[in-house]
């Protein structure tokens, strides 16, 4: 890093918005996301000797932020004791005794791009996401909306990959059913 680049205020100016978006997409809270930007820049400044320059400054800052976010989620879980029992299998309701479908899933052939631009659909999607149990929703959103890899998510929520797969499966099945009922089944489609 040149002396000119060694300036946390410049980091804020150049990467602040990006870091903010990164945190916001994972924490969904403006206040909290701003705090994360502050903590990240502070930690980066205090440890700037550790910046090796083998990655871009932004990548380095994002790496620090990633850990901050994971720490935050871990604390939050301990604090609020967000529990999710895996014993009750909610997917059982979708299948009969012998493991065949109770309802008939339909194939969706709509164009994802058009759906993404459709405000009415986005509302239905939000609504369906909000019905998921808390931890399932957090994990699912971190994976699908924030696009994080399985390893970071398992780290943040202190769960095994197997547990993650179970939560993702439950979330997908619940969403598939909810979206079928409220959109793809033909109800509010205009």
């Amino acid at each position: 890093m040149t002396d000119k680049e060694m300036n946390p205020e410049l980091w804020l100016k150049e990467h602040g918005d990006y870091l903010f978006r990164y945190a916001l997409s994972r924490l969904h809270d403006t206040e909290l996301a701003s705090d994360m930007v502050q903590e990240t820049l502070l930690a980066a400044w205090r440890g700037h000797e550790r910046f090796k320059g083998d990655s871009t400054l932004r990548t380095w800052l994002v790496g620090i932020m990633k850990h901050k976010i994971i720490d935050h989620i871990r604390k939050e879980i301990r604090h609020r004791k967000i529990s999710d029992r895996l014993e009750n299998d909610p997917t059982s309701a979708h299948f009969s005794e012998n493991g065949s479908w109770q309802h008939s899933p339909s194939a969706w052939r709509d164009n994802p791009e058009a759906l993404c631009d459709n405000q009415e659909f986005r509302q239905v999607l939000q609504e369906c996401l909000s019905h998921l149990p808390e931890k399932q929703r957090h994990v699912f959103e971190m994976r699908e909306l924030a696009g994080d890899d399985s390893e970071s998510i398992c780290n943040a929520y202190d769960i095994t990959p197997t547990h993650l797969h179970v939560l993702m499966h439950r979330a997908r099945l619940a969403l598939q059913t909810c979206l079928h009922e409220h959109w793809f089944g033909g109800h509010s489609k205009s």
């Binding site: 997917t91 059982s92 979708h94 299948f95 012998n98 493991g99 065949s100 479908w101 797969h165 179970v166 499966h169 099945l173």
Partner: peptide, 9 residues
């Protein structure tokens, strides 16, 4: 047995 349930996972 349990085919579709297992397959959905």
């Amino acid at each position: 047995k349990h085919a579709c349930k297992r397959v959905s996972q």
